[in-house]
Amino acid sequence: MPQIVRNVSQLREIVAGWKADGDAVGVVPTMGALHDGHLSLVRAARGDCARVIVTIFVNPKQFNAPADLLKYPRTEEADAALLAPLGVDVVFAPPIEEVYPSGFATTVSVSGISDPLEGAHRPGHFDGVATVVAKLFGMTAADRAYFGQKDWQQLQVVQRLVADLNLAVKITGCETIREADGLAMSSRNAQLSTDARACAPALHAAMQRAAAAIRGGAPVPLVMKAARAEVLDAGFDEVEYIELRSALMLERVSQLDGPVRMLAAAMIGGVRLIDNIAV
């Protein structure tokens, strides 16, 4: 089993020893409830780095709804067992007071790229993400960090954070891992009822059809309207957004000109699912 560390001072002592030996350190930041998507990030880190840290911390600052924070799955023992065969050196699982001690008063905010989409629907979410990611980079002193492309906007926010603050960590974005029926793997999928789980792949399927239509020259506004209706007809309760955006700056686009992503967020059975694909 990987060593579980709960305080920064012990972690820094371990990492200092690795770096004295010239070992590159990779970090995979997670909130736990690990699945094959997370494990693919760990394998990527293991392939690049002599030492690998997986962080498990359910970050309260990135949740908008207290109820959502409370019901987020916490499965540390099972997570550690999943990581054991992958050669993870340390699981850093700090308590809240270690990350946000009494008197904590700093917020990291990445403007612009964090404003639309998730930023518009979850005010303050990306401030919480940027703050905890900056802290985790400082705590782990990692050389490389690994994030999934399923959270595409988050990946762009982290890239901008690192560039703007001249942080000495290389960010690697890894492909979204999907279930056999196309549903993007997510810790939240465990909260889906049987009926909701059966309907959930319709989001990705609608996006795939919409992307094909756009590549075929169909008008973007009409395609996006049809995709929204298709997702609702499939049994989703709400579509918060399904939009075509430039891949890097996330500006709204109406035609294929440079790298483009289709991004979506929708609610089904009280569970919020997000997805994105290249167009």
Rank of each mutant, 00 (worst) to 15 (best):
G119N: 01
R160D: 00
S254W: 11
L39I: 09
G216D: 08
D257R: 04
V54R: 01
A184T: 06
G216Y: 01
V253R: 12
K71C: 10
A16E: 13
A198T: 14
D181W: 11
A227H: 00
S186H: 07
L34G: 03
E77I: 13
E240V: 12
D48A: 15
M249K: 15
R122C: 11
E243T: 11
I177Q: 13
F126R: 02
G258A: 08
A180F: 09
A226S: 13
I214G: 02
L69V: 03
L136W: 04
V231Y: 00
F126W: 05
L244V: 02
N64A: 14
G103C: 01
D115K: 10
A78T: 12
E240T: 11
A20E: 15
D36M: 10
L232W: 07
G37A: 09
V91K: 03
S246Q: 14
L69K: 04
I56V: 15
F57D: 00
G17T: 06
V88I: 12
H125E: 06
Y72H: 01
Q149R: 14
P94E: 07
V99W: 01
V25E: 03
Q3F: 09
A78K: 12
L273N: 03
V91G: 06
G32L: 01
E76K: 04
C49D: 08
L82I: 09
E179Q: 14
P73C: 04
A45I: 09
I53V: 15
M224H: 02
